[in-house]
Design a protein around this nucleic acid. Structure first.
Lengths: 215, 215, 215, 215
DNA sequence: GATGAATGAGGTTTCATTCAT
DNA sequence: AATGAATGAAACCTCATTCAT
């Protein structure tokens, strides 16, 4: 109940900030950081340039805020998805599905995210990189924990270190989505997101143990 | 034995070109396309700016030449590695090992390659993107053919469409290497590159069929 | 009385634009298009380079605006001068006098105008050329109409096609002014502008004396 | 008989120089001084750039040599034409005809000539201007002498100072030729060059009709 | 003597950022 | 508090000229 009580002024400011970030997301994801000017963002957001600078110290600051905010929201959704169920298999399915769905619903973010998470953002100064990487490592560890727990529970065979499994699964999802994003007609995204999991599960799970193969 | 030699002038020009490209690779991979000026490249390569422009029409042209040349060399190495052996398993091992070795030997290229292959290069004009993507798709199909042949030979279970298997494997290698590149102390690259393959093989191969499990 | 006034902001902008054009006119007419840099114009006009580019898209655009504006004003003055009187002789006198006076009052423009109207401006891209030439042809036709009307009224003998008469008269004025501009002490411009008209008005050859008319 | 005896070396050099100047004339007249590079001229003339600089100190020097040489040749032809006949009328006819014919035979030169003679060549540094102007003034005085002599012989009425007559006649020829050069279909050059002379020779106004003569 | 590769000053243009209004 | 005009550093690129071969 305390969220709604921001003074009107504050709420107004927050709304303006969101509009600026939305305009920036659109433009950055379409044209890349260096091909978007502050004037362009200001115009798209229907503010004066000076107002932009009231909210963000400089272009880099605006970019960082944008990326961090998007990542926060994305991370929250994933973490929530893997916190619900008991079953490790179900957790992973939730994870893959949530990630897939989020990506498909927020295409502009995907380009940004991949540019950032793939070390491709040397365009942007060090600070962001540093923080995002740490967060990404932590995130991978969260996924690794699921594999670890599955192994401990004897649901999974220990075919590799959990961290590697997490890395491999996460990157496989990204890669599939990226190909689909690039050329949807050539790389139709599998209707059933589990197809990617199959690659990992079909060898991974003790057949006798898991309802997965009953499908 | 001098029949194979280019005239001295030509050799000299080629050498200069290589020096320019080497300087550019270093700088681009460290700071990104937009944060490197032609003056910087010229200075690092120890030529005058004008000389740079004698070799490359403009900055974009220089960048394209650099990326294409590196990719050519990389692609050649991989294709050669997977053409040798009969055995699909051996082909995939060669592929993983060659890619790993190449990456580790040419770090600056990795950053460039990932920036380009990961759709993160909206900074650069369309032409390159287009061509590189096509080449990358073709490359994935080459890998997919190995899986396909393995499946037809009953060496592999058909746990997923070969193309997806190729995508997943390739991206898993990239992701591992990238993590190691970012933070080697945190993500020691597995001494044995086969660790990554294990994830795919342990479920993939008919146990009775393959000496893999005997290891 | 304030209804006719532009908002202050607009007036200010217009004034700045005029200052830029004035600086450009001075420099271009002294040194020629290619020997004047944008930095020079900016400095003379006491603005930053960036401000220049807020008003004009690029150097060529600035040049075109300058030439067209000057020609407009010049053309207006001449057309007004030849629209007043009934009498063709008076019209031509007005024309010569107005042109002379305008030239003498705006020396920098003369150089520009002659450079442009005399096909000497291959330096500048095609667009301007094209438009200015058309306008000049139309202008000559306006003058030709005066000769034509004079001939129809029997005021003038039909000694040549009106268009040729216009060309000859106009070029004679230009040439006189140009010589005076180059070396005033050597080519004092005739106090009475009618001197040039005399050449056209008075017949040159004694009819009785010369076989010319026998033709 | 002494012209043919230049040592072979000298003759060869002269020929090369002519080829360079010919290439330069073509290019300068098509694109203007500032839009032609030394490399372009060298290539068109099929020499190395260095060789160009053996013959001409720099670009400006080459340009000056070109213009002066063309003007020499042009001036010679005209002067020869007006030296032959006794009769002033015939001299003027020869002058108009020779100039017209020369212009039409050497179009590239015309553009250059007009650019130079019309004060439009502020592109080029002062030296050339200075010399060409003096020569042009002298030339005009040669023409003026014809009018003067005609007046003294009572062949011509003294309707204006001879120098003005010369200026007016010469500029009328240039203007006609220029219009024809710009748009031949719109400004067909009079088959008979004398048409222009007519304007000067025939009196324009009916003496009996106009108060002009009363002045 | 001829060559043309190498040079680098200098031109045009963009855009992040400031600050007076 | 919001504005957006003004700024000028810095980028890309050209081309006249030199000089080692």
């Amino acid at each position: 109940m305390e969220g709604q009580k921001l003074p009107r002024r504050e709420r107004e400011k927050l709304r303006q900030r969101q509009e600026m970030l939305a305009a920036a997301l659109d433009l950055f994801s379409q044209k890349g950081y260096h091909n978007v000017s502050m004037a362009e963002i200001a115009e798209k957001a229907e503010f004066a340039i000076g107002t932009l600078y009231k909210f963000f110290q400089n272009k880099e600051d605006l970019y960082k805020a944008l990326v961090l905010e998007q990542c926060d929201s994305f991370e929250d959704a994933i973490l929530q998805a893997i916190e619900q169920p008991e079953d490790e298999v179900e957790k992973l399915r939730n994870y893959v599905r949530t990630k897939t769905e989020r990506f498909r619903r927020n295409l502009p973010f995907v380009r940004l995210f991949l540019a950032e998470s793939r070390g491709a953002s040397f365009n942007i100064k060090a600070g962001l990189d540093e923080e995002l990487r740490k967060r990404y490592y932590n995130f991978l560890e969260r996924i690794a924990l699921i594999f670890d727990s599955g192994i401990k529970n004897r649901r999974f065979k220990k075919i590799a270190a959990p961290y590697y499994l997490a890395v491999a699964l996460d990157s496989a999802i990204d890669a599939s989505l990226l190909l689909w994003l690039d050329a949807p007609e050539r790389h139709p995204y599998p209707e059933d997101p589990d197809v990617i999991l199959d690659i990992f599960f079909k060898g991974l799970i003790e057949p006798c143990f898991c309802p997965w193969f009953a499908k």
